[in-house]
């Protein structure tokens, strides 16, 4: 029995390693020919990407994806992704780009192309009940902290502060677990925590963002590695620059009721001056 499994495991290894990722064509040409572009977006990250009752995904990042499709004159297909699967979806060709609150990190640059200038930025912080009286990151040592699978800072928080991260596939699950008291805090992007708190929802009235935000990282549109310096990457790069210059991102932030981010103001000033 065992050796049989062994043989098949070896065959499987060979098979899957042979499965290439290669999608060598230029995505821009492909998208235009197909008349359709697929964007990976969040559907659990209010108000950047979330579901409305008709089942549509809406939000600030969805607006960005719509703008890109409009500029290309193609139809937009939205594909909901989570942190743990978005890069596979991109490399395997399910989507053409990621606009899903993805932080630009060196580790990830090995796998996906990051479009510059980045369109947003966030840092790491925690959402915690006021009663937990957290003051410093080191207060998390040895405590259970909820998180979301695939977030790049999970490992850092676990290693640096010896927190015990309990991570879930999606944000709602992690929030429910926090409310249920499964963990003492929820570690996530400060942008999300801020907008959750500022919505003045009574269920978060007794919660706070008590720590100093750490590890600020810009969010980038992700494309396949071959695309980043190709026509598709250049097109997106120009688009993103224009978003900053015209103040489009700042307008969207207002439209979705997001607390103004200093990053956008700084970027707007930088590109408007050019």
């Amino acid at each position: 029995m065992l050796s049989r499994f062994g043989k098949w495991a070896v065959a499987l290894v060979v098979l899957t390693l042979a499965c290439g990722h290669a999608m060598a064509d230029d995505t821009l040409a492909k998208v235009k020919a197909a008349g359709k572009i697929a964007a990976g977006v969040k559907n659990d990250y209010r108000p950047w990407g979330f579901l409305d009752p008709s089942g549509q995904i809406v939000g600030m990042e969805v607006d960005l994806a719509k703008d890109i499709a409009k500029r290309l004159g193609v139809e937009l297909q939205l594909v909901p992704v989570v942190a743990a699967n978005r890069m596979e979806f991109l490399t395997q060709g399910n989507i053409d780009m990621i606009i899903a609150t993805m932080s630009d990190t060196p580790e990830r640059r090995k796998v996906v192309g990051m479009i510059e200038p980045q369109y947003y930025a966030s840092a790491t912080n925690v959402l915690a009940p006021k009663s937990a009286h957290l003051h410093a990151w080191t207060d998390l040592t040895g405590k259970k902290v909820c998180g979301v699978q695939g977030a790049f800072y999970n490992r850092g928080v676990e290693q640096k502060y010896q927190a015990d991260i309990v991570s879930f596939a999606g944000v709602p699950d992690a929030l429910k677990a926090l409310q249920a008291g499964t963990c003492i805090a929820f570690v996530y992007d400060d942008t999300f925590i801020q907008s959750t708190l500022s919505a003045k929802d009574p269920q978060w009235a007794d919660y706070e963002m008590p720590l100093k935000s750490e590890d600020p990282q810009p969010w980038a549109i992700g494309v396949r590695l071959d695309d980043v310096n190709g026509p598709f990457g250049q097109f997106l790069s120009k688009t993103s620059e224009e978003w900053h210059r015209t103040g489009y991102l700042i307008d969207l932030e207002k439209k979705w009721g997001i607390t103004p981010s200093p990053f956008l103001v700084e970027m707007h000033n930088k590109y408007a001056a050019k």
């Binding site: 559907n43 209010r46 979330f50 579901l51 709602p172 929802d201 269920q203």
Partner: peptide, 11 residues
């Protein structure tokens, strides 16, 4: 179901 729970945000 989970989408609905996020959108309504009610325990």
């Amino acid at each position: 179901v989970r989408g609905a729970l996020v959108a309504e945000n009610r325990t």
